[in-house]
């Protein structure tokens, strides 16, 4: 009966993951391997293809007021602003997912905020890996593909922004998790009882213990040939914290040195006093 409860929990998390996130790993992998039957994504590999691509690839955030003034800014700044808007959208999606985790909305409201503040970037970089291969990353809901070399060719410090995420994604993708595994994994990340400033740790740890059991069983059932997958995946949580720390340091540097650039208020809120 306990196993049945854990399976039901994993199923519930997978369902809300499908409802909360716009582009799943299954869809992204189909696009990346050309198996969708739809047209292939537009490849952005240099400044020319970036300019051409802008006509084909629609950006949701173009409808956001205040974006008009961005058009006169340097390419690096414009690209970064689009990344930011996608991140803000991702925070909204992750919040919706978090609220669907059984027990989450019963936690102290300030603790919910703290869990999201510390968890969202770790979740963003785990799910971003689904959109990446060693050569590039899908953008704009899979309509475009931006190459890793192009991102590396941007001027400093923008060229340093994505490379650590590619390095992580290559290792993370070798674990071959699918969306149903990722759903439980990101619930485990969100419910981390060791985030700084939590008021009431015990109920968070209790919820996470249950999620960890659900994750262990999920991996056993879904990957019977990979006996150490659970342990390997838990190790990735340490790598994620390192990536987030470096990411936040880079954003703080950008905020100081790139005076043309506005950091979105939601991202400022999340980054402030983070690490």
């Amino acid at each position: 009966p306990e196993c049945a409860d854990l399976r039901a929990l994993a199923k519930h998390l997978y369902d809300s993951y499908l409802k909360s996130f716009s582009l799943t790993k299954a869809k992204a992998r189909a696009i990346l391997t050309g198996k969708t039957g739809e047209k292939a994504p537009f490849v952005i590999y240099d400044m020319n293809s970036l300019m051409t691509g802008q006509q084909f690839v629609s950006y949701k955030q173009n409808s956001v007021p205040g974006q008009g003034q961005e058009q006169n800014k340097e390419v690096e700044i414009q690209l970064f602003q689009r990344c930011q808007f996608r991140s803000v959208e991702a925070v909204r999606e992750i919040t919706e997912f978090a609220k669907s985790i059984p027990g989450f909305i019963g936690l102290d409201l300030n603790d919910q905020v703290t869990l999201l503040k510390y968890g969202v970037h770790e979740v963003i970089f785990s799910t971003l890996a689904s959109l990446m291969n060693k050569d590039g990353v899908l953008i704009s809901d899979g309509q475009g593909f931006m190459t890793r070399e192009f991102l590396k060719s941007l001027r400093k410090p923008f060229c340093e922004l994505m490379e650590p995420k590619f390095e992580f994604s290559v290792k993370f993708n070798s674990l071959e998790l699918d969306d149903s595994d990722l759903a439980v994994f990101i619930a485990v990340i969100i419910l981390s009882g060791d985030r700084p400033g939590l008021v009431n740790v015990k109920p968070i740890e209790d919820l996470q213990d249950n999620m960890l059991q659900a994750l262990e069983l999920q991996l056993k059932m879904n990957h019977p040939d990979a006996p150490h997958l659970f342990a390997k995946l838990l190790q990735k949580m340490t790598d994620l914290r390192q990536i987030v720390t470096e990411h936040v340091q880079l954003l703080q540097l950008l905020k100081k040195t790139e005076l043309e650039m506005n950091i979105h208020p939601l991202l400022q809120e999340i980054m402030k006093d983070l690490y």
Binding site: T95, I105, L116, E269
Partner: peptide, 20 residues
Amino acid sequence: KEKHKILHRLLQNSSSPVDL
């Protein structure tokens, strides 16, 4: 609470658009 007002709002409202 003031420090994280957008996060609070996201948690308390369902799918509210994030304004700038």
